[in-house]
């Protein structure tokens, strides 16, 4: 707001992305690169919730709905059009439009807190149910059968715009995913430090105060939600590319929980935190899978409980504080912002 904008995170992101793009394809084979690509893709997803929850204070329990919509939109678009550029764009536009409709319903209805959580969760369950029940030849969009529980297989790879035959190789998909991750991170950083971003944060801090100053909180929340939805959709598109396949599992409750776990572990209210949380948890999950002895849920659940109890601010803010040589301060409510816990409405269900 006053020229004190902090550019080093952006510089760091650029350097990290460039070195990953230049170095990693040289030292890893394609299989390993493919494994790394998923980290980048899911990190984009993590960033989208990091923005709307961590900065907008909107805790969506059904964030996966935008991710899933992005994946399905890309699949249907790419298979119908043959050329993927429009499908790529639609994979952001459709989730954004859906976020606009849902957000209008939520924010202009003044729904917040637990109630917002209940509705977003319900919405993603509806999509899960609907997508699962589309088996049979009558459920098709254009030439694409939706495939019910089995989903849509053999989704074409992204091609270079204008060159339908030049589809991305594994290495190119890796580079694209890392570049998109860096781009999304940098855009969100700039957005947060813009005047718009200051107001979004102010509304999270104290919605009533912001309105008493003349800011239309509903509008700001809606825009935040739509941006987050578009980014999650983009992540979904990359995900469909990565696996070449999508199924109703993208809408499942577990998918939404996973994003929330990344955020809680990494730190709500930061951008880097959720990305680190995502990478850490994904790495842990895949390592556990290769051991095959310990149950995945057991570990994820245990970590979530322990982090909420012992490290309520998450890794990044805690480490940042320790680095500054201060003891972590107990926050009143780990998510005072998410709850909109301003003095005027601190109670739930009253």
């Amino acid at each position: 707001m006053n020229g004190s904008r902090n550019y080093w995170p952006i510089a760091a992101a650029v350097i990290a992305a460039l070195s990953a793009i230049i170095v990693l394809p040289v030292i890893y084979d394609e299989y390993a690169l493919l494994q790394l690509t998923i980290y980048a893709i899911l990190s984009v997803l993590a960033l989208s919730l990091a923005f709307i929850w961590g900065y907008g204070g909107i805790l969506s329990f059904g964030h996966a709905v935008f991710f899933g919509l992005g994946a399905y939109t890309y699949a249907i678009g790419a298979m119908n059009f043959g050329e993927t550029t429009i499908a790529l764009l639609l994979s952001m536009v459709i989730p954004a439009l859906f976020a606009a409709a849902l957000g209008y319903f939520l924010f202009y209805g003044r729904i917040s807190d637990v109630y917002l959580g209940a509705i977003t969760l319900t919405v993603t369950l509806i999509f899960f149910d609907l997508a699962s029940s589309t088996s049979g030849p009558q459920y098709r969009i254009g030439q694409v059968a939706l495939g019910g529980f089995n989903g849509i297989p053999s989704i074409p790879q992204l091609n270079v715009p204008g060159f339908p035959d030049w589809t991305l190789s594994t290495t190119e998909l890796f580079i694209l995913s890392v570049a998109i991750l860096a781009l999304v991170y940098i855009s969100l950083r700039l957005l947060i430090s813009s005047d718009f971003g200051r107001v979004v944060i102010a509304i999270k801090e104290n919605e009533v105060r912001a309105e008493l100053l003349g800011y239309d909180a509903r509008k700001y929340k809606l825009v935040t939600f739509v941006i987050g939805g578009a980014i999650a959709g983009l992540a979904g598109c990359l995900f469909a590319n990565w696996g070449g396949f999508t199924s109703p599992a993208v809408f499942a409750l577990g998918q939404s929980v996973q994003i929330i776990i990344w955020m809680v572990v990494g730190g709500v209210g930061t951008l880097a935190g959720p990305v680190i949380g995502c990478v850490l948890m994904q790495w842990l999950t895949s390592s556990l899978a290769s051991f095959g002895t310990v149950n995945n849920n057991l570990v994820l659940g245990g970590i979530l409980v322990i982090v909420v109890l012992l490290l309520p601010q998450g890794l990044v803010p805690t480490i940042a504080r320790l680095a500054r040589g201060r003891r972590p301060v107990q926050r009143l409510d780990a998510t005072a912002g998410a709850l909109g816990a301003t003095p005027a409405k601190s109670e739930v269900g009253a």
Binding site: M1, D195, R198, A202, Y215
Partner: peptide, 22 residues
């Protein structure tokens, strides 16, 4: 009723910014 985690200047600036240029 203030924006608790923002600075004094940010609080006051946000108030002015609503009706004025940056």
């Amino acid at each position: 009723s203030l924006f608790d985690n923002l600075s004094v200047r940010e609080n006051i600036w946000l108030s002015a910014r609503r009706n004025h240029s940056r």
